[in-house]
């Protein structure tokens, strides 16, 4: 199976949609080769603005363009988009509910060798706290393309999270994508695995392993962390045991979002697979995923523990 990074899909989708929606403008902060906005820049140079290594100005300029009816996609690495420029995203974009799409790449541990300074593991938590913000974390290239299209059509701020690592394609080209709607990828009633981003593939592998030990696992893909699909989480709760999986700190991301729903509506035993409140480090992406317990085997282990 071919592997494609979601950032590649982002760059391609942007160039495609740019042809249909002339109001789309793209801004980058000196990383257009890496974020793949360079594809758009080559096709539509007049609608592309390199702001240089200045992420705060990147977000503010995008906000100004949005007040004049443009649909800006502002891109840089996730760590800078959500960390360096957090307050600009909050006060200049989310508070006035401007139509800016923050399309951040190189999210998570799988940035790999660049190490902890560049591994954004708290971006979903940061973006989820902001009123008016929609938070989307696609699982593969197909979903990433659909997410870009949906974000462009959505009125208001959207955070799109993309990865550097090439990942297996899970979804069919004709699969449905609706902001705020999770999807059951596999039926099961012993345990539910709710996953987001690149952990969706691991969740599906985990379900196969669990089946061999006689446990039928439901697998749910949550691409939209906000607004979270409460209905599907409550359906998952019917299994009586839930494991969440994300390439993100366990504080404030998918695990927290699911726990918030369950705690108030249907308390259910659960375990969170994610980064356990620590920074990343340099290494090969696959090695880091193992080291930080973000693999199918870790999901299996958590599911078995919770069912014990």
């Amino acid at each position: 199976m071919t592997k494609i990074a979601t950032r590649e899909a982002y760059g391609e989708a942007l160039a495609e949609i740019g042809e249909e929606i002339k109001d789309i403008v793209v801004l980058d902060a000196d990383l257009s080769g890496s974020t793949k906005t360079a594809i758009f820049a080559k096709k539509y140079p007049e609608r592309f603005f390199n702001i240089g290594i200045a992420e705060q100005d990147l977000m503010g300029t995008a906000a100004g363009l949005a007040t004049c009816g443009k649909i800006p996609f502002a891109s840089t690495f996730a760590i800078f988009a959500t960390g360096r420029a957090f307050e600009q995203v909050r006060n200049s974009i989310c508070y006035p509910k401007l139509n800016v799409k923050i399309a951040a790449t190189h999210a998570g541990l799988t940035v790999g060798e660049d190490g902890a300074t560049h591994q954004s593991i708290e971006d979903l938590a940061l973006m989820r706290t902001l009123p008016n913000m929609t938070v989307i974390n696609p699982a593969d290239a197909v979903e990433a393309k659909k997410a870009v299209r949906a974000a462009a059509a959505h009125e208001g701020p959207v955070y799109l999270r993309f990865g550097r690592l090439a990942v297996e394609t899970i979804f069919e080209e004709d699969s449905e994508f609706e902001i705020g709607k999770g999807k059951i990828l596999r039926e099961g009633n012993d345990v539910a695995i709710i996953a987001t981003g690149i952990m969706v593939g691991e969740a599906l592998k985990a379900a196969e392993i669990l089946e061999k030990s006689g446990l039928k696992a439901m697998v749910i893909n949550i691409h939209t962390l906000k607004p979270i699909d409460e209905e599907i989480i409550l359906k998952a709760a019917e299994c009586g045991a839930i494991v969440t999986a994300e390439e993100h700190t366990i504080i404030g991301g998918l695990g927290s979002a699911v726990a918030e729903v369950l705690a108030e509506k249907k308390p259910t035993p659960m375990k969170r697979i994610g980064i356990k409140d620590k920074f990343g480090q340099s290494g090969k992406p696959e090695e880091l995923l193992k080291l930080y317990n973000l693999t199918a085997e870790d999901i299996v282990k958590a599911a078995k523990e919770i069912k014990r």
Binding site: T61, A63, L65, T67, C68, G69, K70, S92
Partner: peptide, 11 residues
């Protein structure tokens, strides 16, 4: 504010 003003001027 200057960043936002730049965005408006670019538009």
């Amino acid at each position: 504010g200057l960043s936002a003003a730049n965005g408006m001027a670019l538009a």
